[in-house]
Design a protein around this nucleic acid. Sequence first.
DNA 1: CTTGAAAATAGACACCA
DNA 2: TGGTGTCTATTTTCAAG
Lengths: 146, 146
Amino acid sequence: MESLDEIDRAILELLQADGRLSGAEVGRRVGLSQPAAAARIQRLEKSGVILGYRAVVDPAAVGLNIHAVVRLRTTHAQLAKALALAERIPDVVSTVRVTGEDCLLFDVHCTHAERLEQVVDSLARFGPVTTSLVLRSYPPKPLPTP
Amino acid sequence: MESLDEIDRAILELLQADGRLSGAEVGRRVGLSQPAAAARIQRLEKSGVILGYRAVVDPAAVGLNIHAVVRLRTTHAQLAKALALAERIPDVVSTVRVTGEDCLLFDVHCTHAERLEQVVDSLARFGPVTTSLVLRSYPPKPLPTP
DNA sequence: CTTGAAAATAGACACCA
DNA sequence: TGGTGTCTATTTTCAAG
């Protein structure tokens, strides 16, 4: 884990807001020359602080009208199988293992309710599921850099 | 909502995996020329299918060792206040409103447990909270483009 | 880290298939 | 709509201070 100074934090915040900023633009905004900014960005990438860059796609704009959070309460023995299944279902875009009664938490994006039903049913093979429809997502913030 | 063909879907998948690909590189991979690929990408951006580009930062690499999912069960009357509070807490990086008993779901990143305690306590002003520590996150997938 | 120049690349545009 | 060729603007890389 690298130690970051004030400028590194500013750079991370800028790139989390807009991942396509050039080194020159980043430098301008944090008060560094282009080579200095580029060197810092490269260091952040190589040291694993910046894992990569992603385009953010609007689910609704591609017909994914239903976003649900599915919680699964399963047994230790079936955990690996549940993970493997989730991996195979394209609608399940994100999986986290958590503490508590529900051991797995899935983000599911579907075009229609019947499809969500299929996904939930297949996950329910491994234990009781709780499904919550997402009514609204609030714009995510950049990570707080301590 | 635009209708997307096979090539648009391929472009979205590529850019979700690597948001810094150039128009020429995208074109190469989907079998289009640079101008044709650039035109499609621009169309996807302007039509709102691509919302933007983000750098992905590793929370652990910046000292955010604790990732928790906090569920809050609050009343309709206090919902707005809870949202306003969550907005003000930097550790709360993502908020969704969902159906079900717990109306709000937060992603919280903290440097240490005591800080998480503070965050949970302040959210608990608005109702009972359930906190789950994230033990492991599995790499998110690109959205399925139907 | 800065400045300054060079090399590489990406983006934009006109024109044609 | 897409392909080719070209031109310009930007970016990145590398020198040297």
